[in-house]
Design a protein around this nucleic acid. Structure first.
Length: 481
RNA sequence: GGCGACGUGCCCGAGUGGUUUAGGGAGCGGUCUGCAAAACCGCGUACACGGGUUCGAUUCCCGUCGUCGCCUCCA
């Protein structure tokens, strides 16, 4: 088990070194629940889901923690706008998030934690930081004093001077240093608040992740993930808080950051107003297609979200699904439902395609290469379809191997294929079969017009007919589901 | 201004100091088919530009140009 990852703290590819052999603890910054997540968000969560699945596949015992930031200025503002309470808004958006994630094949985390369930722990942590003089109070607010923490900026590779040079906002007058950030914000009128030694208020943005990650995984947990726009200030601040409070380090052993999604030539971002909400995309495309798009290039690179790119994903995924359907038809009862023993010898050269798949993902999760091996697997399987249907037992054995490997590898990537034909009623199937009989008869009589008419009508209803060596095969397309 | 990433064939997108092709999409040609569809086979000889290192660079180094990200809430 030798897995390499790009660690953004050191900016290079390193060996994954976990605190305990065979176990991986990972914390990923989840959504701020005040609206639907956009596809950039979604891509990050799909990616960490895949990483989690892969680590499990490679034998690690993985603990995956995801948080909801459910107390925040934007939640308060939006709730006010919609005339509902912030709690209602947060729980609605949490539910919507879970729906979207389910559609994308993202498994729920092992631990889902919410900021509002950890206010007391956060207050405790802030008190600790004040005691140790890493933080100070000013008019009911509490700030973290970055100058007191040696090494501030080390995660994002910035010096305090560099950061000041790029300042774009007027610093608060009550801060001692312009880059000091809020741990606790005093409540204004009509805002949700909790009591604290500094008066009623709510926690600042970063503290919840420090507190919750350490609570559930302990200092020195293995992987901290999120989008690359969180490196500074969010992750830098999380790290400073946690290491200052516990007087120990590291906060996280490895940091992984996913690249930003862009539309046209701009980053997709809520503040730029150019977001495409995942919910809308999922309303018109299967989640698998979006997942295919998300995973078909490196998690670290910036990627484009556009119609042509979605089309590529749609076609690529369709190739897999078509193979699945064809293999199911050709193999019948011998279709490998769940591969118990991994098949490692398909595509016989070297160690085969499964080995190449593993080798690829071991190297900082090179999913593009992993996808290529699955496409090769599909080609290998497709080559043996016709012969299988003609009764060639050797071809059949190869097809079974290829299919088993295909199912295994795609499931590692989080794709599950379902037999769309099986979703209908027995009556429907009988009717389709009957129409196929009529069509076969017509073809026998050279009445091709009649035969083609049946095919067209069925196709309009979402039932695709394909003539094969051993007779016509039908399948229900996505439109027909 | 500081920090960083990237620039690969029509498009998306891996990768490598030379010997063997990433892969997908689109296109063209072929096989199969009554016709389709699916599938399979074949094809395009790509690595921003200019220097340098090297026997040899798309791959290393320097520079130029360009694109994008972070430095503000953001996945």
């Amino acid at each position: 088990m030798s897995i390499k990852i790009h660690d953004s703290a050191v900016r290079r590819i390193v060996q994954l070194e976990t605190a305990e052999p065979g176990r991986v603890s990972m914390y990923v910054c989840g959504p701020t629940v005040y609206g639907f997540v956009h596809v950039g968000n979604a891509r990050t969560f799909v990616w960490f889901d895949m990483i989690r699945r892969y680590l499990i596949y490679r034998g690690f015992d993985v603990t995956y923690v995801l948080n909801y930031t459910d107390v925040d200025d934007k939640i308060i503002d939006r709730a006010r706008l919609e005339k509902i309470t912030p709690e209602e808004l947060a729980s609605d958006c949490g539910r919507a998030f879970e729906q979207d994630m389910a559609a994308l094949g993202v498994r729920p985390p092992d631990i889902l934690c919410k900021a509002t369930d950890h206010i007391a722990e956060m207050v405790n942590a802030i008190e600790g930081l004040v005691d140790k003089e890493f933080a100070y109070e000013a008019d009911g607010d509490v700030f973290f004093a970055i100058e007191r923490f040696a090494g501030y900026g080390s995660l994002s590779h910035r010096s305090i001077d560099d950061l000041r040079a790029g300042e774009r906002i007027e610093p608060r007058a009550s801060k001692r240093h312009p880059l000091d950030f809020a741990l606790w914000k005093s409540a204004k009128e009509d805002e949700p608040s909790w009591s604290s030694p500094w008066g009623p208020g709510r926690p600042g943005w970063h503290i919840e992740c420090s507190v919750m990650s350490v609570k559930y995984l302990g200092m020195g947990f293995d992987i901290h993930g999120g989008g690359s726009d969180l490196v500074f200030p969010h992750h830098e601040n999380e790290k400073a808080q946690a290491e200052a409070l516990t007087a120990s380090k590291p906060f996280a052993r490895h940091w992984m950051h996913s690249g930003m999604v862009q539309t046209e030539s701009e980053k997709m971002s809520k503040s730029l107003g150019n977001v495409v909400v995942a919910h809308d995309v999922l309303a018109r495309l299967p989640g698998e297609v979006v997942r295919y798009w998300a995973l078909s290039s490196s998690y670290r690179s910036q990627v484009l979200f556009s119609e042509p790119v979605l089309h590529d994903a749609e076609q690529g995924y369709a190739r897999w699904k078509t193979f699945f359907d064809a293999a199911r038809y050709a193999l019948g009862d011998e279709f490998p439902v769940r591969p118990d023993a991994p098949v490692r010898r398909v595509g016989e050269e070297g160690d085969g395609l499964v080995a190449r798949f593993i080798e690829s993902l071991d190297e900082d999760f090179n999913s593009a290469r992993a996808f290529a091996t699955i496409h090769d697997l599909v080609r290998e399987g497709n080559k043996h379809l016709d012969a299988t249907q003609r009764g060639d037992t050797e071809a059949r054995a190869t097809l079974i191997d290829a299919t088993a490997a295909f199912l295994e590898l795609t499931s590692v990537l989080g794709f599950s294929f379902t037999d769309t034909n099986a979703e209908g009623s027995g009556l429907r199937d009988q009717l389709i079969e009957y129409l196929l009989e009529l069509r076969t008869e017509a073809r026998g009589e050279q009445a091709f017009e009649r035969a083609d008419a049946i095919r067209v009508r069925l196709s309009d209803m979402g039932v695709v007919i394909e003539d094969t060596a051993s007779g016509p095969r039908w399948r229900v397309s996505d439109e027909g589901r």
